[in-house]
Each structure stands twice: as C-alpha cells, then as structure tokens.
C-alpha cells in the first residue's frame, strides 16, 4: 500500500484524503516537516495558493519539500497545488514563489473569478471522460514540449492543458477530489 501524504496546511484536504483512501493509499496529513519522511507520494490540495505558500514557509516545509521534489518524490497538485508546482506564475503576487517542478506558465484565476467557475466533462488520455470542476481555476497558458498533456479543455479560446504530467510531477487545473469519480487519483497512485 503506497504511503501518500496530503499537504494539510489549508484547503480541501478532507476530499483528497477520502479519495486516496478509496483507491487504496495509506494517507498521512502533512503539517510538519517530519511528516514528509517515508512518503511515496504527496498531494497538494486546492485552496488559496498564497496562503499555502505562506504556511509552507512558516512551517519550514518549503525547503525540505523542494529537495524531495528534486530527489524524485511523486507529487500531484490540484488547482492551488498546480500553481505551487509551476515554473512561472502569471497574475500572481509579485513575490509569489513556486517549486518550479512543471515546465509551464500558469495564470492565477485564468478561468475567471468565482462567478465564472464552471463544471464540464474532460477527456483524459487513457481514462476517458471525467467530470471537471473548475473553481477560480488557474489556466496553463504556455508549456514546454516535454510536458505530457493528459487532458485539454477549450474554454472558447483554444485548447489549454488541464491535466499534465512531467515524470513524477502531476498538475491539474480542476478538482477531481470534489467529484465521486476517483479515476484520476487511481491513475496517480497506480503510477506511484
């Protein structure tokens, strides 16, 4: 049984936890640096990326997690988690940092404010159609060729990736954890 941490500083930790348990992971809520030890993978949940970034710094997790990502820890980031994994953040705070683990530029609230939040069906490579819940979602604006795109969505301005992967690092614009469909979590945990 893979041991998967859920970064539990802020956000929809509970939904990820129950999804991961459903697909057979041993789940650890991570609030302290020591809890990063002996993890096979980590999920960074949805929430506010500025808040999570602030708490990553104050809790001292930022530095250690950065090293573990470099050393090959598997990570899935959804929404705010995707922003924290990106190489570049557009429309963020001027001092907003990220782990730079995914070769892409992501625009905060790129799909609009809450009033523009939406639900749609996303076609995921190798999985099929999954429900996609986009809440003040970040938009992947540019991406490098070595990024594996598992799903695109066209929101009236051409195809943009919404589920991506580069080796062990996964990013998702939407919230698979808010639905009853556990196939994306299964895909991630199986790959681990």
């Amino acid at each position: 049984m893979p041991r998967v941490g859920v970064l539990a500083l802020q956000g929809d930790v509970r939904e990820h936890t129950s999804m991961l348990e459903r697909v057979g992971a041993d789940v650890v809520a991570v609030r302290e640096v020591e809890q990063l030890d002996d993890l096979d993978a980590l999920v960074m949940p949805g929430g506010e990326s500025t808040t999570i970034a602030y708490l990553l710094t104050t809790s001292g997790i930022r530095e250690t997690l950065g090293k573990k990502i470099e050393d090959g820890l598997s990570v899935l980031g959804t929404c705010a988690g995707l922003i924290l994994l990106a190489d570049e953040i557009l429309d963020g705070r001027s001092d907003q940092w990220s782990f730079g683990a995914l070769p892409l530029a992501v625009r905060r609230n790129g799909y609009g404010r809450q009033i523009s939040s939406f639900e749609t069906i996303v076609e995921v490579k190798g999985v099929g159609e999954v429900p996609g819940v986009f809440i003040r979602a970040p938009k992947i604006e540019t991406w490098s060729d070595d990024l594996e795109v598992l799903a695109f969505h066209d929101h009236g301005d051409g195809d943009h990736p919404v589920l991506v992967r580069k080796e062990r690092i996964w990013g998702c614009s939407f919230h698979p954890e808010l639905t009853k469909d556990d196939r994306i979590h299964r895909l991630f945990v199986d790959a681990v």
Partner: peptide, 13 residues
C-alpha cells in the same frame, strides 16, 4: 460547484 469555493477556504482565515 457553487459550494466548491467554500471547500477551498477550509482551514483558512
């Protein structure tokens, strides 16, 4: 989806 934002605010101030 409307309540989804509240889920994102959990654990926050």
């Amino acid at each position: 989806m409307k309540r989804g934002l509240a889920d994102m605010l959990r654990g926050g101030v």
